[in-house]
């Protein structure tokens, strides 16, 4: 089943065709990576899917339901979560509270009578933090975390929303070799153990080839190539775009 699908999605900024008739899909349980040179339209495509900007035309479907033009907070309740290129967390809350607010939000338990450290929510948050090796840092604030841990926290927040699909925007950007290895492990874990479908935007092709079931190559707002890592690696059009 298609967990996520775009049909002929289009977004122009003046004369710039940022996303120009893009149709892609991600099957349930897959990791699909979106690659391409800078300015290819990858992040704009993620912004269109996640409701941050509205398309000029075309549709987006999540688990078969048309979600085109819905706001980010509406999409979260439908099962779409997103992480960001620059880690985007709640800086003055503790790591635990970062997850608690997401858990309360998705559970519909935002209320003045519900304690923020409600035992059920804390238990769930700690379990997720353990999955991401952040449990020992639960009481630190994000400012006290390493760059790699901040990115992991970003993913953990998204995962705590019980998503069907997670959009990851350059999760390994500016990471050390060791941090990248950890993140690659987490991305695989999302698919293999936590049963989440992933659409990944990534510049590091080693990471992409290692984790992806399929790869979509974008160039100048359009789809250049789609296939398994092996197929894409051998595609002469891709070689030309990347190697000139």
């Amino acid at each position: 089943m298609k967990a996520l699908e775009t049909r002929n999605l289009r977004k122009y900024f003046g004369n710039v065709r940022a996303v120009d008739g893009v149709s892609i899909h991600v099957d349930q349980g897959e990791i699909v990576s979106l690659v391409g040179p800078n300015g290819a339209g990858k992040t704009t495509l993620l912004n269109l899917i996640s409701g941050l900007i509205k398309p000029d035309s075309g549709e987006v479907y999540l688990m078969g339901e048309d979600i085109t033009g819905k706001s980010p907070n509406q999409l979260v309740s439908k099962g779409l979560a997103r992480c960001f290129q620059i880690s985007n967390v709640f800086e003055d809350l503790t790591v635990l509270e970062n997850l608690l607010v997401a858990i309360h939000s998705i559970s519909g338990t935002i209320s003045m009578t519900k304690r923020l450290d409600d035992s059920e929510a804390v238990e769930k948050a700690m379990k997720i933090l353990k999955e991401f090796n952040l449990d020992v840092k639960a009481h630190l604030t994000p400012k006290e975390l390493s760059h790699g841990d901040r990115k992991l926290l970003d993913v953990a927040i998204a995962y705590s929303l019980n998503p069907k699909v997670i959009l990851l925007d350059e999760p390994t950007a500016a990471m050390s070799y060791r941090e990248k290895k950890t993140t690659v492990g987490v991305i695989k874990k999302l698919r293999d153990q936590l049963r989440v479908t992933v659409l990944l935007v990534e510049h590091d092709l080693d990471v992409v080839y290692e984790v992806s079931d399929r790869i979509v190559v974008m160039h100048q707002g359009q789809i250049l190539s789609v296939g398994t890592p092996e197929e894409v690696r051998e595609d002469p059009k891709v070689k030309e775009v990347y190697l000139g």
């Binding site: 980010p72 997103r82 985007n88 709640f90 003055d92 809350l93 929303l161």
Partner: peptide
């Protein structure tokens, strides 16, 4: 702390 991210956790 982060109104932008708050939207992406469903608030």
């Amino acid at each position: 702390d982060n109104a932008f991210r708050a939207k992406f956790i469903g608030l």
